[in-house]
Amino acid sequence: MSFNLRKDSKGVVVVGVDGQLIVGNRQELKQKVLDALEGGAKKFVIDFSRTGYIDSSGLGVLVSLSKKIREQGGDLRLAGLNEDLQTLFELTKLDTLFSILKTPEEAVAAF
């Protein structure tokens, strides 16, 4: 499992989550995004196209990051959720908190 950060030509940071986002690795994701935020990035997309599962700790870190990014005048969008992950966001009503797009390309284009 790992997190891959890339910055596209519009300056959007796209973070790919490989494997899972859970209690054991959420801090690593948080630190990578916060480092990019501190480096001046404002627009973020988390890409879950290659993610198997997310636990509630992973959901919690997304809530935390979204707050911190908004405090800095930026925005965090989510993309690439499979049907099970989409259901997880709907069940927890987190779909009302996040802007969720089908693909990372759509999420980047929407900025």
Binding site: S56, L59, V63, S64, L88, T92, L97
Partner: peptide
């Protein structure tokens, strides 16, 4: 509670 960072484990 929706915007809280934790408290979803048992519900999920």
């Amino acid at each position: 509670n929706v915007a809280k960072e934790d408290g979803r484990g048992l519900f999920v």
